[in-house]
Structure formats: C-alpha cells, structure tokens
Simulated scan of single mutants.
Amino acid sequence: VAGVPVLASAGNSGDGLNSTSYPAGYAGVISVAATQQNGTRAEFSTVHTYNDVAAPGVAINSATNTGGYKEVNGTSPACALAAGVVALMKAKNPKLTPAQVNDVLIATAQRPAGGGSALLGYGPINANAAVDASASPPKDKTAPAAYDGKEYLGTPDGTPK
C-alpha cells in the first residue's frame, strides 16, 4: 500500500554469513537491528550496511502460540517494538510519509560513539524523541522521477519502457 512505512528485522546471522537479507535489504525499507539491555548490539543481530536503527531484542516478553508468555531473543521482536514506535509517530502525525518516518527515526536515534555503523545503523531508537519530532518532520524531498532517456539497457522481453 502506498504511503505505509515498511520495517523489517535485520536478521539473526550475527557477524557471519551476512549476505543481503530481504526484505530488510530493499531500498525504502527501515531495517531494524537488535540491542541487548545495555544498548549494545545483540550478538545474534545481523551486521550489514543497510541497518537503519536498532531496538531492544534480548529477553523480550512475548506471547506464545500455546497461551502465556516467555522471553524471546531476536531481531523480529526488535522490529515489532520499532513498528510500535512508528505507530505512535503516525498517531501523532497521520500525514507522515515513509521517508519522513525514516528521517525522524534516524535523526532522533541515540548515535553510537563514532556515528552510524553496520552494527546498529544510526543507533537505538529513542521513542520519546521520535514521537515528539513527528509533529514537525523534515520536508519529504522524495518524488518519482520520469524516465526521459532513449536507451533501454534491459533484456528485451516485450515490456514497454
């Protein structure tokens, strides 16, 4: 659906076998890494250059499919917590575009020493700051670009330019 921010968990491959993981690796998707309770990267959280932000992902109280709750670890619960922050941001300002959501999350993240990194992206999400900043986000400068070239470099398959 157009206009809906898309978040995806970075993956649980740690710092090995870090080939691109989808949907987290797609342009426009907000990739969420996982942190431990102290805010540092969770050992299992996939290291990749497309990581945007991080959220808690260790010992997260989660509902089970058999009833009750248990603590779980992973970038999936981290992504769920990040999506909750995005929902609060959209509640504060329903006109936020996906690009604005991304920009606000990055601008308000708790930057690690040395700035952004492949470990935690731009840092752990600061929910309070992100929701507050949603009231007056930066201007969305994204727009579709018209194709005006004459050369078509794709393999001809009958699809029009």
Score class of each variant (00 low, 15 high):
D157L: 11
A8C: 01
S13Y: 11
D148S: 12
A109T: 00
Y122S: 07
V58Y: 10
S13V: 02
S134W: 04
G3P: 11
V101Q: 02
A54D: 06
K70I: 13
A10V: 03
L7R: 04
S45K: 03
A143E: 02
A33Y: 07
S134C: 04
G149Y: 03
N73S: 11
V53H: 09
S45M: 08
Q36M: 05
P56G: 12
G121D: 08
G74Y: 06
G39H: 15
E43G: 08
A8K: 01
A10Y: 03
T108K: 03
A27H: 10
L7N: 04
N12I: 01
T46C: 09
D103K: 14
D15A: 04
V101H: 07
A42L: 06
A33P: 03
V72K: 07
A87P: 02
A145R: 15
A63H: 06
G115A: 12
M89E: 06
V47S: 09
Y22K: 06
A118G: 10
A127W: 11
T35P: 05
N65D: 10
G74H: 02
P23R: 13
K161S: 05
P112E: 09
T155E: 12
F44Y: 13
A135F: 01
T159M: 14
P160E: 06
Y122Q: 01
G158Y: 14
S31V: 06
Y26T: 04
A54F: 14
A91H: 11
E151R: 02
A2W: 01
A59F: 08
D140I: 07
A59R: 14
T155S: 13
S62M: 06
D140F: 12
G11M: 10
A135P: 00
G116Q: 11
A83Y: 05
I60H: 07
Q110Y: 01
S31Y: 04
Q36V: 04
G84S: 14
N73C: 02
N18M: 13
G114L: 15
V6I: 14
K70Y: 02
K92W: 00
K150V: 05
Y50M: 02
A118F: 00
G114P: 10
V58E: 14
A27R: 13
G74L: 06
N93C: 06
V53M: 11
S136I: 00
A99D: 09
A83L: 15
V85D: 14
G74D: 01
G3K: 11
A91P: 01
K70M: 13
S76K: 02
A83R: 10
V104T: 07
A145V: 15
G14P: 01
H48T: 01
L153P: 10
V58W: 08
V6Q: 06
Y147M: 07
A129E: 08
A8E: 00
N93L: 02
S117D: 15
N102D: 08
L105S: 08
D157F: 10
G14N: 04
I106G: 03
L105D: 00
V1G: 11
V4F: 03
A91V: 09
P23C: 13
T97S: 07
E43S: 15
L81P: 00
N93D: 06
P144K: 14
L120K: 11
A27E: 09
Q110T: 07
